[in-house]
Design a protein around this nucleic acid. Sequence first.
DNA 1: ATTGCGACTTGACATTTATCAAGCGATTTA
DNA 2: TAAATCGCTTGATAAATGTCAAGTCGCAAT
Lengths: 230, 230
Amino acid sequence: MRESEKETVRALPIFSGMFQDNFDALLAGSFLQRFPASVVLFSESDLTDFLHILIEGQVELFASANNREGTMTLIKPVATFVLASALIDGAYQMSARTLEASRILMIPAENVRTAMLKDRDFAQKAVLELASCYHGVVRAYKNIKLRTAVERLANYLLVQHERQGTNGALVLPVEKRTLASVLGMTPENLSRAFSTLKPYGVVVDGPNIVLNKMDDLKTIAKPSEFIDAN
Amino acid sequence: MRESEKETVRALPIFSGMFQDNFDALLAGSFLQRFPASVVLFSESDLTDFLHILIEGQVELFASANNREGTMTLIKPVATFVLASALIDGAYQMSARTLEASRILMIPAENVRTAMLKDRDFAQKAVLELASCYHGVVRAYKNIKLRTAVERLANYLLVQHERQGTNGALVLPVEKRTLASVLGMTPENLSRAFSTLKPYGVVVDGPNIVLNKMDDLKTIAKPSEFIDAN
DNA sequence: ATTGCGACTTGACATTTATCAAGCGATTTA
DNA sequence: TAAATCGCTTGATAAATGTCAAGTCGCAAT
């Protein structure tokens, strides 16, 4: 791991308040690894060796059962993932794969647990991170339990629109088949959900979306502060 | 709050390792309150004033959107709830109601945040509790995303059967309409799911269930270590 | 005891979602 | 360049789930 990279990592909010000694101890045995696209990083049954921090690229956390597979969440830089598993010292509980070529900082889980005990600032930041992830899953759970597929798509579009500048257009940040998995439906169903939204001013051209009737779209989406990410 | 009750609380794992001063400070301004059945404790949009600890009774955490309502989880004694919200200092994100008459210890959220900073043992226990809750929601999310209604019921029965002694029978710990909400289906659908499981040896008499063909039931349930609670 | 209410069940039906199959278009591979 | 592959879409159909209505049963209130 190069010195310049180490400084980038040091500047991340979760690490920025740590004592230097604790930070150095935390990163001992860590490494910054490059992965190509579509590589499985770990499986849900694997024991949690590392806390992961996505520096660059994109990662999908997913789960399998029966013959189905579903996306739990997408990770975008810069963000930690599997923090809960690293703290508990058990299985990952989720599988992970890269969606693009990615750079990932891998910190031995044991180091993380030590740092939690030694460094108050890190512990505090990690707890808030964890609590925030908890609320994230709760939102996702509400989303799938209380909404139909079309509603989930409509709200997804509204959130992306907001994030991308609220200028009447947005670009899907992932392939549609991945989006379908995120939203808990089949790719065929996603296609049909887009069709259903056409009368509500949603124009689709590949990954480019235009929203022409924001009010109508909001009417059908019924967005909720306590489901949709801020 | 009586002295004997305070001792009961003191003995709970999450508090047992605290310094006495920190414990006393934590409980300052706390109170142990009794609630009758079917009382709403707080709404998802309320600001988090208290960390709750269910001492006796039963509580449902639920969420509403559109005109639907869904159970997030059921709380049984003794357990904390809304820990994440108490740490973040924002809205509860979920609503809560009592299902039975209940006794609940309510600790000011501010006290909890202070104790997190001051008491290392409490901080450690709280983090593990939080991480464990996180995995709990992840399991629930997988359950609803990767399984059909019948599969969810079958696995629920298997888990309850195990918890209640693995002797071929079990008693539903909640009303069927509540169970339906927990499992993410309508009460009508739950009735039909039970009918569907009849050929798999599931005999229903009110809240009393008998499992006559465990192997067949497991075949249809396809239980997973990483979805079903231990 | 009677009444009324609520939980539960069942049937008929509607809606939502998934599956299977085919085809299109763009990109990759040979 | 040709062939193969992959992502996406569309149609037909099936399966899963929800809604509405009716009816039974048991419990609680009068």
